[in-house]
């Protein structure tokens, strides 16, 4: 249902105000000290521009770092359990990158594949994604290797592409997008053939490998212990890559108790942690870091495509920018993909 129109950048304020009046919370990239973070902008000029990517992803909007699943209280033999109501504020996520918009499909595949996750579904249902195409990239970007692109519409309700300093090309892609545009229809003018200029402004993100092809034969590298060991030698086993990743969705469920009452929490977890697979018996099926690294690559580039039909990586490059020891996922996967030839 793609419809293209022109939106003046100067009218963003009016559009955001209309969203506010409609009861939408707006989250957008905002500069805070030396970083760009997702927050509610107090004015449209607060929305950051000229950055390649935010250090943290926007996944917390639908999958926060921790969720309170239930509260419990014991009174002698009586145990009282209370389920917190699911709060899903209507939210417009404005100004994310196309790779981030695409990441929601991967999260959805994980959180709905068997019994749909009530928290995720409620938040996703109340989320509108208005993304902005990339006119620049850096050495960590590889969206074009995993089926995305700097102007990809995948996962967006509306995609804005800056045609010049004054105008965006607005592609309204879904019903949610139509609803968002309908909040201020007077701001959208006919595109009059301007859609043809979209490609010209997009960043050139080199293709480093073909994820679809790679998924076919990556399983054959499973036993190449030497390769996994060599790649992961410098990995410190922290969770920085997983926690900034827009598609990493593993969590850990823990009870926090003070005397006779407490809460059950689900918190972000990472396959890079030694504890991730540690059994109660003390046995750890992934007992060395190289096996954890292999799991990370296999899960994203083989298991998820095979089982869920989605790519486990959108090529945003955040993991590689955040890694304290410069583990570069795009580079590592390219190396693996070249092993086939």
């Amino acid at each position: 249902m793609s419809e293209s129109s022109i939106l003046q950048r100067a009218s963003l304020g009016a559009w955001l105000e209309a969203m506010g009046r409609a009861g939408q919370r707006v989250l957008a990239p905002v500069r805070e000290a030396d970083r760009v973070v997702f927050a509610t902008p107090s004015a449209p000029d607060q929305i950051a521009t000229g950055f390649v990517q935010t250090p943290a992803s926007a996944k917390a909007v639908v999958f926060p770092p921790y969720d309170e699943m239930l509260r419990f209280r014991a009174n002698g033999e009586d145990v009282h359990v209370e389920e917190p109501s699911i709060a899903a504020e209507p939210t417009v996520l404005f100004g994310v990158r196309p790779c981030d918009a695409a990441s929601f499909a991967t999260l959805r595949a994980v959180f709905t594949w068997d019994s749909p996750d009530a928290w995720f579904e409620a938040r996703m249902a109340s989320l509108t994604v208005i993304s902005v195409s990339c006119t620049q990239c850096d050495e960590y970007c590889f969206c074009t290797s995993v089926g995305g692109g700097p102007g990809s519409t995948q996962g967006s309700d509306i995609l804005l592409t800056p045609l010049d300093d004054r105008r965006w090309l607005a592609e309204v892609l879904t019903e949610k997008g139509q609803a968002a545009a309908a909040l201020a229809p007077q701001l959208f003018a006919p595109a009059n053939g301007e859609a043809a200029n979209k490609e010209k402004v997009l960043a050139h993100v080199p293709v480093r490998f073909e994820a679809k092809e790679f998924a076919q034969w990556l399983p054959s590298l499973f036993d190449r212990t030497d390769v996994w060991k060599e790649q992961s030698l410098r990995c410190l086993g922290c969770g920085a890559c997983a926690f900034v990743c827009p598609t990493c969705s593993c969590f850990d469920i823990q009870d926090e108790r003070v005397r006779d009452q407490g809460t059950r929490l689900r918190c972000w977890d990472s396959c890079g942690f030694r504890l991730f697979t540690l059994h109660a018996s003390g046995h750890n099926p992934r007992h060395v870091q190289s096996e954890r690294w292999r799991q990370r690559v296999m899960h994203k580039f083989s298991y998820q495509p095979e089982r869920l039909g989605v790519t486990g990586c959108v090529g945003c490059g955040r993991c590689s920018r955040a890694c304290p020891v410069d583990m570069n996922l795009g580079e590592h996967v390219r190396m693996l993909s070249e092993m086939s030839v």
């Binding site: 922290c238 969770g239 997983a242 108790r257 972000w268 990472s270």
Partner: peptide, 30 residues
């Protein structure tokens, strides 16, 4: 964000099992 990159990068944080990884009892809120 509790990614524990600080702990992993620190040469003197070498405990085999960090106190945050104990949950019986849970010393540090997760």
């Amino acid at each position: 964000i509790r990614c524990y990159a600080c702990r992993a990068a620190c040469p003197l944080c070498y405990c085999e099992q960090c106190i945050t990884e104990n949950n019986q009892p849970q010393w540090v809120p997760v």
